[in-house]
Each structure stands twice: as structure tokens, then as C-alpha cells.
């Protein structure tokens, strides 16, 4: 790009930053006034969880989280629409394969722990799902072309599981008179755990499938021959 133009853009962006910093500073100096924090903490015991962030994500603002699962699904559907995935990597050597045999079960186990602990400490469906997705990534890097994912039919059901359980729970609650995503008193804890479990599976499968990067194939393609240069593949 033209040097003068990029200099001009730089100056304009710097001016914008100065204005934003000044505005931000003058607002912080004001009295914070009414905050959501005290209200959120006050009603925490009614939410069924004791971790305030989980309470916001799965109870106060559960609707946002439902749509966020929709965003994740939209991205995966977009990726699938672009055609079949590229072939996977070559089979891992013995050292990497041994490590994968250890790391993948550990990641799944830790994911389960994070899911459970999310109720009262930092953790929850997204962290757990990210770990499941990471397990898939590791498997594909080690030569499992489909990242350890099941068949296409199963993948399709698994990626919609989170948003599906979420929406159906919401609608069921609406039809029984509580209101959309309004958990009945005392039931919140179990409903949240149910939704989070479904969401964890969906997120993990979605992330791994997005990493595979193409529409699932009916049969897993055979691993490419060993002559493929690993470094050329790793560039992708």
C-alpha cells in the first residue's frame, strides 16, 4: 500500500485512540452508580450454581449462550459446505503416538472435571468443550484423519445436541407455564448440568470437526504415504 496513505491511516487511528482513551478515563472517574454486580451476587443462591460467571452464562443470560451455540454451528456448517477435508497427516512416530495415548484420555478426563467444577469454581461447558476439541486436534495431528470423530450421522446429531437440548428445555419450560428458559425453583442445578453436558459434547465435536475442515466423509480416507514431508503439511 501507498506509504503516505498508510501514514495518514496511522495518524487517524492514533487520534481515534486518544479520543477513546480520554473518554474512557473520564468515565472511570465518575461514580460507578448502579451496577449489575451486587444484584447478580444477591440472587446467586437462587440460580442453582455458586459460580457467578456460570450463573450469568447458564441462567441470567442463558439466551445469549444458546445463540452462541448457534454461531458455532453456523461456522461449522459453513466449513462443511466448502467441500471435503484435506487428507490428514502421516501416522505419528512411536514417541508421539505414546504421548497421544496418554494426552487424549487425560484431556477428556480433565474436560469432564472442568464441566463438573463449573458449578462452583472457574470452569464450565466451554472450557470443557475446548479440551475435548483439543483432544480431537491432537489426534488429527497424530495421523487420525477424522480426529477420532464418529461417522457423519453421529457427528451431525452431536453438533446440534447442545443447542437442541437447550432450545427444547426452554420451549418445554415455556409450555409448562414457567417461561422460556425460566428454570423452576430447585430444578435449576440439574437442568443447568444437563444443558452443560450436552453443550460440552457439542462444542468439543464442533471444534474438532471444524479443525478437520471439511464435510465428513462416509469412510475415513487412508492415511497418506509416509513420503509426505511433514513440514510441508505443518505449514497449513
Amino acid at each position: 500500500m501507498n506509504r503516505d496513505l498508510s501514514l495518514l491511516i496511522g495518524i487517524l487511528v492514533a487520534l481515534l485512540a486518544v479520543v477513546l482513551l480520554w473518554v474512557f478515563h473520564s468515565t472511570l472517574a465518575l461514580d460507578p452508580g448502579q451496577r449489575l454486580a451486587s444484584l447478580a451476587m444477591e440472587r446467586l443462591p437462587e440460580t442453582g450454581v455458586s459460580n457467578p460467571v456460570t450463573a450469568v452464562l447458564l441462567n441470567y443470560r442463558a439466551y445469549d449462550t444458546l445463540l452462541e451455540l448457534g454461531v458455532l454451528l453456523a461456522a461449522l456448517l459453513g466449513i462443511w459446505s466448502l467441500g471435503p477435508p484435506r487428507p490428514g497427516f502421516q501416522r505419528a512416530g512411536p514417541a508421539l503416538a505414546a504421548m497421544v495415548d496418554w494426552v487424549v484420555p487425560l484431556a477428556i478426563l480433565t474436560g469432564g472435571y472442568l464441566l463438573w467444577v463449573g458449578g462452583h469454581a472457574p470452569g464450565g461447558a466451554f472450557q470443557a468443550g475446548a479440551l475435548l476439541g483439543a483432544a480431537g486436534v491432537i489426534m488429527r495431528l497424530a495421523g487420525h484423519a477424522n480426529a477420532g470423530l464418529p461417522s457423519e450421522t453421529w457427528q451431525r446429531w452431536l453438533v446440534v445436541l447442545g443447542a437442541g437440548v437447550f432450545t427444547l428445555t426452554g420451549l418445554l419450560l415455556a409450555f409448562t407455564g414457567y417461561g422460556f428458559l425460566t428454570y423452576p425453583p430447585g430444578q435449576a442445578k440439574w437442568l443447568i448440568l444437563l444443558i452443560e453436558t450436552a453443550a460440552t459434547l457439542a462444542i468439543g465435536v464442533t471444534l474438532a470437526a471444524a479443525y478437520v475442515g471439511g464435510r465428513p466423509q462416509p469412510t475415513a480416507p487412508p492415511p497418506p504415504p509416509l513420503v509426505t514431508s511433514a513440514s510441508a503439511e505443518a505449514d497449513r
Binding site: G70, T167, G170, G179, F180
Partner: peptide, 20 residues
């Protein structure tokens, strides 16, 4: 409650169309 329907119905339809 019917405010949620124009959002929940197509979402549910999208999920089913993905799965089937």
C-alpha cells in the same frame, strides 16, 4: 411467550435440518 417463537422455531428447524 409467543415472542420467542419466531426465533426458537427456525433455530429448531435448523438443528433438525442439520441432523437429518
Amino acid at each position: 411467550d409467543s415472542l420467542i417463537l419466531p426465533i426458537a422455531l427456525p433455530l429448531l428447524g435448523a438443528l433438525l435440518a442439520t441432523a437429518l
